[in-house]
Structures are given as C-alpha cells and as structure tokens.
Amino acid sequence: MNNLIYLPGVVTLALDVEKCNGCRMCMIVCPHAVFEMENKRAVIRRKDFCMECGACAKNCPEGAIAVKSGVGCAAGIINGILRGTEPTCDCDSGGTCC
C-alpha cells in the first residue's frame, strides 16, 4: 500500500531537533511512521506520509514539534467555509460525519 500517499510537499510538520530529548513519543504515536531516531534524537524521515493528525506535537513533552493539524476531509473544509470557521467535521447540526 505504498501508493497510498497523498500530495507531496504540502505538509506543515516541523521539528526543532535542538529541543528533542529523545523520548521517542513521536515515533510511538505516529500512525504513518514519519519519524525515525538518529543519534538519539528524532528526525522527520517520511514527511509526505504525514496526515497532520497532530498526535506527535500533542505528545511531545518538549514542544519540539509543530504542525497545523486538522481534519483532512473535504466535507469538513466545506463545512468550515459555510460557517466561516476552521475546517470542522463537527456534527452538532445532526448531519452525518466521521
């Protein structure tokens, strides 16, 4: 399933290696194996596989990772445009969603 990769060069993921303490939490939570360890510090190895879920940034105790996370979902983005908010798959209006 290596061809299940989305658009290249668009992902907002960034890692400040200087801040990394080598705890490996980003490697544990990433569902697409984006990170690897190099010299006891994390590095971004497969950036285009990132889906910007934000799990790594959320679980980095050093705040070394930044990513503009959100729903990678067309319906959610349209929802956001219609309501003038950030992309949201929020379904309080009773519609179907993920």
Partner: peptide
C-alpha cells in the same frame, strides 16, 4: 469527499486539492 474517510490525507493537502 472520501478524503474524510481515508486514513492518509492531510488538511493541507485536501485544502490544496479543493
């Protein structure tokens, strides 16, 4: 719309595509 069901599409990517 299936980007919302998929497990590998990023927000930045979907925005660019749309």
């Amino acid at each position: 719309n299936f980007t919302g069901s998929s497990t590998f599409t990023s927000l930045s990517g979907v925005q660019k595509e749309m």
